[in-house]
Computed example of a mutant assay.
Amino acid sequence: MVVAAYYIMKVMDIYYYVLFASIILTWIPDIQRTIVGRILYRITEPYLGIFRRFIPAVRLGGGYMDFSPIVALFVWRVFVENGVRWLLLKALGLA
């Protein structure tokens, strides 16, 4: 069970970096039309889409700035990962 908990936390950590990469790659023009862009979009959009529905983009100058990915990363790292870690520790009898 401890090994499974370790791998669950590693997968969650990897997903955090996939989210981060997806957000960074949105700054590169035309990247979302590549195979990498489409794969990252399919992997991350179900999670990021939740935040985009509730946090509108802010108008800055001639364009818009979407702050929802920043909030999504924060929520993932602070609440989701820590919540899962706590549940795993509880299941192992360590919390």
Rank of each mutant, 00 (worst) to 15 (best):
Y17D: 06
G83L: 03
Y64E: 13
W76C: 03
I28Y: 13
M65N: 05
F20L: 15
L73V: 12
D13R: 11
L73E: 06
L40C: 08
R53V: 05
A72C: 03
G49C: 07
W76K: 02
L89P: 01
R77P: 00
G63H: 11
Y41N: 11
S68M: 09
E81S: 05
V71G: 02
F51Q: 05
G62S: 13
I23W: 12
W27V: 10
F51W: 13
R52Y: 14
L88R: 01
M65V: 15
F51R: 05
I39Q: 06
L19R: 04
L60W: 14
G62R: 14
V78M: 14
P29I: 09
I43E: 01
L40F: 13
F51Y: 12
S22V: 01
V78S: 10
Y16A: 09
R42C: 02
R77Q: 14
E81V: 14
S22I: 00
L19A: 05
G49D: 07
I43C: 02
R33A: 08
M12V: 00
D13E: 15
S68P: 07
M65Q: 10
R53E: 09
T44L: 03
I23H: 15
R85Y: 10
I39K: 11
A21C: 12
V36H: 06
V36M: 13
R42E: 06
L73C: 10
P56N: 09
R59L: 07
A21W: 08
A72W: 03
R59Y: 09
V36P: 05
G49N: 07
I24P: 11
V80E: 00
D13F: 12
L19I: 04
V58G: 02
R53I: 03
L73P: 04
R38F: 04
Y64R: 12
A72V: 02
Y15L: 01
Y17L: 11
L48T: 04
I24F: 14
L60P: 00
P69R: 06
Y64L: 12
E45M: 10
I35D: 07
A72M: 03
L25A: 12
L87H: 03
I24Q: 08
D66F: 10
Y64A: 11
I14Y: 13
I31N: 04
G37P: 10
R59D: 05
R38C: 03
V71N: 04
R77K: 14
R38I: 04
Y41V: 07
Y64P: 00
E81T: 08
I50G: 05
R59T: 09
F67E: 07
V84E: 01
N82L: 10
R53A: 11
I55E: 08
L19N: 03
W76I: 02
A72D: 04
R52M: 07
E45N: 13
T26N: 15
L60H: 08
Y64N: 10
L88S: 01
P46Q: 03
D13Q: 14
R42L: 02
I14S: 03
M12F: 00
Y47E: 01
I28G: 07
